[in-house]
């Protein structure tokens, strides 16, 4: 529901990921992080929730 609300507000769905990884699943952790990084990199740079401290 959180992802849906973010998407509804216009934030790309791929910026939010949920995963269930056991402490013994190191390889799954690496795979998931890689996948997330790739998906977020594929999106444009986004400053929607980034505060502009230069003002």
């Amino acid at each position: 529901m959180m992802g849906n609300l973010l998407e509804h507000m216009g934030v790309e769905r791929d910026r939010l990921h949920f995963s269930w990884i056991s402490s013994a699943e190191a390889t799954k952790f690496v795979d998931v992080v890689k996948e997330i990084s790739d998906k977020v990199r594929a999106l444009d740079t986004d400053k929607k929730f980034a505060k502009d401290y230069t003002k």
Binding site: M1, M2, L5, L6, M9, K48, F49, K51, D52
Partner: peptide
């Protein structure tokens, strides 16, 4: 979340206030 009227803080406030009401 920041206290002022910075739009990022306003967005954060409204998004989270709403989500606390989910369900």
């Amino acid at each position: 979340v920041g206290k002022g009227q910075d739009k990022t803080d306003i967005n954060t406030f409204h998004f989270l206030r709403a989500f606390h009401c989910a369900g």
